[in-house]
Design a binder for these strands. Structure first.
Lengths: 209, 209
DNA sequence: CGTTGAATACCTGCTGCCGGGTATTTTGAT
DNA sequence: ATCAAAATACCCGGCAGCAGGTATTCAACG
């Protein structure tokens, strides 16, 4: 492989231009295209067949996740490195599950970015140093803990967050209000929060909402 | 003025490196330093006396705002350009009030960044093209509409979002529970939401939380 | 085949949220 | 000096949310 062909996909053009500029310093990195939305990125991938795509986790409407899944299913040979603003551990797992090979924060230094690209292109996975500790801890917990909330409970939690009352939820899901009550109480018990407000906050910080 | 001396302050090192790299293309731009937190930025400003500081609105703990105010009060001759992830109109006003001379989104293109720097250094104000329309509209609204929520109401909304009950809030603010009740009811009336859940969502989408 | 967890449904009782008022004081703007 | 808005405080009534149970059905897993 002579060059590592790279496509950038991020809705922050400045960042993309910046990354592109940084990558220029390494001769074997070749930035083929910059895409600022998911559709354009997909087109570029089809047309240019890159070796690596560097994308943002939150490109407009959660596009980074979609894009990663698209690449993983359609072009499994193409590597994906995800950049993120958030050090939110739950997002890392989601992206890795979706098929990302690397996960970096946007506060990463040039050197570590280059290291990450090399590692990923050699077939490895690269999670930013400052994150790997935190992530490893979360993974251990995952092995012990069960999913905490059942699918049905998550569904109801989402509806609660959309301002539906218990009665409205029961009508929407063709359930008895009692059942919805029970679910909500179970959610509150499991998450150990005090009120609906706590539920919203829990959902946000755990990537459910 | 031979060079335009620039200091970058942003906790996303990658972005800073990128910007620095972009600015290299213009010979009369000279990046003196990169600071990844507010204190370091202040030190650098004192020591190096730049002509321009480019900073992020959300550097860790809302540091961009602090930094801008610091510069405006201590070194009024130094220009400030603010970069932001959000196209949230409310933030623009805050930063301009704090003394920022330019406001750009991180999706700005290299060319517009350079243009913004030149405009600002010539004594002008520069708000990104794609924002100026929206901003102008918001300004017009501001002349008609009032801030919707009063400072006290915002304070209480924040506490509600932190899972405090009415009673707890009243104790915390040394108020009668009745007063807190009144405030909450006024907030709900003003924002036209149905419940606390709606309040949280309102707060999130309006940058209050 | 038995057990376990998820999903369903119901009951009681209480607290706090919420909608509907009214009213005083303080503050800011004109 | 005056007027408007914000902040403070109180009252009443209704119902939803929440805590604490109990119980049945069904699918999954060993």
């Amino acid at each position: 492989m002579k060059y590592i062909k790279i496509i950038l996909a991020d809705d922050h053009d400045l960042l993309m231009d910046g990354i592109a500029s940084l990558l220029h310093d390494v001769p074997q990195f070749k930035v083929l295209a910059k895409a600022s939305d998911v559709l354009q990125a997909m087109d570029d991938i089809k047309a240019l067949q890159p070796d690596l795509v560097i994308t943002d986790i939150s490109m407009g409407e959660k596009g980074g996740l979609e894009l990663t899944r698209f690449i993983a299913s359609e072009y499994p040979l193409i590597k994906v490195i995800v950049l993120s603003m958030h050090d939110d551990v739950s997002h890392i797992g989601t992206m890795i599950d979706a098929g990302a090979n690397g996960y970096l924060l946007k506060n990463v230094r040039q050197q570590e970015l280059q290291q990450a690209i090399i590692t990923v292109m050699e077939g490895g996975q690269y999670v930013q140093q400052s994150l790997s500790t935190k992530f490893a801890k979360a993974m251990q917990q995952d092995k012990q803990e069960k999913p905490l909330l059942s699918p049905r409970e998550i569904e109801i939690l989402r509806l609660i967050a959309l301002e539906y009352s218990t009665l409205e939820i029961s009508e929407r899901l063709f359930l008895s209000p009692h059942t919805v009550e029970t679910h909500r109480k179970n959610i509150i018990r499991k998450t150990k929060v005090k009120s609906v407000v706590g539920l919203i906050n829990f959902g946000r910080s755990n990537g459910i909402l």
